[in-house]
Simulated scan of single mutants.
Amino acid sequence: MNHPALLVMDMQNGIVSRFQENQTMMNAVQKSVEVARQKGIPVIFVRVAFSEGYPEVSPKNKAFSQVQQMGGMTVSEYATQIHESVQPRTGEPIVTKYRVSAFAGSNLEVILRAKQIDTLILTGIATSGVVLSTLREAADKDFAITVLEDACADPDSEVHRVLMEKVFPRQATVQTVDEWVKTLDSIHAQETN
């Protein structure tokens, strides 16, 4: 039997605010969190945030140097807190990363190893950002991976489609939240027989 964890990535106020009209995706993320909790699957929240003064930001980093110039996105600000629709419960880790991948500069891998997690279920915003980067790094670290297609979103729907249909299946199982739930129910039924 595998040991999965659900990663809820970049579902933070400053990012979710740009996708709140996508209620289908928001509902899918909420359902994935609820199901994981019901099934005893650890839920780990990942956010991007920086220390005051941005010591983690290199001027060579095109995306994050813009954040530094505009200000915001520090660890204590509202924009970097997990969105109320998927609030962490006591004991559910909130991992702070300093780059695009959930592994980059964070303690995620230490938490996964401590919990003997070998399978990652990925949700989050954006498909072409944190989901893609985390999937690639997780595959290189030999984790089994499932991406919950409808619990991810991207500003470009065509990029989302291409990643889900053509890129991600090379390294991960791509399922909807409902398909994932059926898989979990099937595994549970087999274990009880």
Results as ranks from 00 to 15, higher is better:
T134W: 02
V131A: 00
I41P: 01
P155D: 12
M9C: 11
S186R: 11
I82Y: 02
P169G: 04
T119L: 02
V95P: 01
V48H: 02
S186N: 12
E149M: 07
N13L: 00
V181T: 12
P155Y: 10
Q38V: 15
T123V: 09
I15P: 04
E21F: 12
E56W: 06
E84L: 01
G14H: 07
A114F: 08
T192G: 14
G53R: 10
L112T: 08
E21C: 04
Q69G: 10
R18H: 12
R99Q: 15
I121D: 05
L163S: 05
M9Y: 06
Q81M: 08
T123P: 01
E56C: 05
F50E: 07
K60Q: 13
T80V: 13
W180Q: 00
L135Q: 03
L120Q: 09
L148K: 05
Q66W: 07
E165P: 06
P59S: 09
A28Y: 01
A5P: 01
A126L: 03
K141C: 06
G72E: 00
S106P: 09
V110P: 12
E158D: 14
T146S: 11
S157H: 10
N22W: 00
H160R: 14
S76K: 15
G105P: 03
Q69P: 01
V162I: 15
H3V: 13
V162Q: 04
Q12A: 09
Q68W: 10
S106M: 08
A114P: 10
V43D: 05
T90A: 02
T123S: 06
D185L: 10
M164I: 14
T119H: 14
N107Y: 08
Y98T: 15
Q12Y: 04
L148N: 08
S58L: 12
V159S: 10
A189L: 07
D185F: 08
V100R: 04
T119A: 11
E158F: 13
I15R: 06
E34R: 07
A36D: 00
G124R: 05
L148V: 07
V177T: 06
S101D: 06
L108Y: 02
V110Y: 14
D118K: 14
F103A: 07
D150M: 03
I15C: 13
T134H: 02
